[in-house]
Write a protein that binds this DNA or RNA. Sequence first.
DNA 1: AAGAGCCTGTAACAAAAATTTCAGAATTAA
DNA 2: TTAATTCTGAAATTTTTGTTACAGGCTCTT
Lengths: 291, 291
Amino acid sequence: MDGPNGKTVVERLRGAFDTLTRAERQLANALVDNYPMLGLESITTVAESAGVSTPTVVRMAKKLGFGGFPEMQATLRAELQATISSPIAKHDQWAENALEGHLLSRFADAVTENIRQTLNQIDKRTFDAVAELLSDQSRNVHVVGGRITRSMADHFFTHMQVIRPGVTQIASNSNSWPHYVLNMRPGDILVAFDIRRYEHDILRLAEMARARDVTIVLFTDQWGSPAARHAAHRFHARIEVPSAWDSTAVILFIAEALIAAIETHTWETTRARMNELEELFDRTRLFRKFV
Amino acid sequence: MDGPNGKTVVERLRGAFDTLTRAERQLANALVDNYPMLGLESITTVAESAGVSTPTVVRMAKKLGFGGFPEMQATLRAELQATISSPIAKHDQWAENALEGHLLSRFADAVTENIRQTLNQIDKRTFDAVAELLSDQSRNVHVVGGRITRSMADHFFTHMQVIRPGVTQIASNSNSWPHYVLNMRPGDILVAFDIRRYEHDILRLAEMARARDVTIVLFTDQWGSPAARHAAHRFHARIEVPSAWDSTAVILFIAEALIAAIETHTWETTRARMNELEELFDRTRLFRKFV
DNA sequence: AAGAGCCTGTAACAAAAATTTCAGAATTAA
DNA sequence: TTAATTCTGAAATTTTTGTTACAGGCTCTT
């Protein structure tokens, strides 16, 4: 696993990063980004991938304490060998050694595994059906979230609002929810986010919405919110991580993927809206470009 | 994962074994025994390790359907790459669901890869230092986000508010930001979220905060917000996905991991606060338990 | 603005890898 | 045993990779 000085290549790249020059940093970043595979290619390929010249590669290898490029490459192979022979070659093992066992990498493991499991359970047709449903601009969309999931709902709303008209965000104060129900028409869609601990108010809202022939799309956890029984479509995400809290990262992931799908469906309209939005930004100078 | 004929190198070695000559079998066995690492060495090393001549290696590679030794080696690299970098794509092959090529799985791949790359670049010490900083209850914490990242800031705030006292969420309307700056004291912390397109207002806020000796923790993308120069600590997340938008899932992931870390630091206080919160919930019946 | 000092890529060069040629060894068939 | 056939590696050759020298360019002083 270790090179000449008992350090892995990625450790050295990071350790010496400050002493590297512009082109060398560019190279170091490329190597770390595609660690360790890029380093196993020929020096020519490495240089081209990183957008630097081959001498830069040699110079950096020497700066890191290797005799030359082939020596660095041999070290990489040795690391790879060591890792490959360990039971499960999980991707995080490529991360810096020091991270091993660190909360951050355990968290990453959990989230990656959550994504995998969640994906395994999602029905592709549900996803496609929901994307199509939400692309139908004759239906209004109402978005609601609970105490923790409110920010997911907010994120989803922010994007949907750009993509299409007729999207409402339901305020977090549940006292005012009846007012929103008043505006729901048959055929409308209620997108609800509810994970444990499930909120009674969301169940009530779902009941009321359903009574008005509103189609409900629910983002929930693997156990399922009580509102699930009123939902026409459900996404069950895995949310457990090494923390006292659950992780909503996977829910966000599905929501973002859904946004991407809807966007594709409604691309003509969406593009026009996005352009218009850009113009408005420019005109109001609310947001300035950074060049 | 696949070579010219859609088969892995081992599969071909096994499949063609019968048609191989004595020296070639010797070589094939050596390659399989040390699969796949031996194949990544130079042709000379491979030949020596297997106890055959280099021409034998070339001949066998051609017999297996490769153009030459480098082509076989490139195939090996690609296999290895696929094995280590895409647990999900790999999983898809077994899953009945046949999500392959579906937007959802491409999205999942992108996010997983983003997590991996981001993790590769995060310095463990930065993470630990920030966790400790935010655990210091003598410092007030101010949280702010931009147009898109507002919901990340919101999520972070929601959790932090439970964990410790002295946390403020800065409203999204930037007109009122000076009011918030007024309340910032030296030693306070500003947690800012800013991804492209970077917002000028956040840069201004960071300037003002820094002038008051506030420590800035910045969540940004790989390119880095202009506010980065004022930040004491920065987290650079990868945010690119197959969509017109960027994905903030990785940012959320880091934020959640950070929350878990802070929670561990301040566990005594936090547990008390969480219990108290439970009681308040029960008493107000604002949120009911679902059993 | 001039000059020192450092970066960086081009280009020439050296080294090694990969391929091909070919002669002799091993094997097989008669 | 001998001749035909196939296999194999030494050696020559070609191709590619890796290294070095060097000059233009950039930045930072003065």
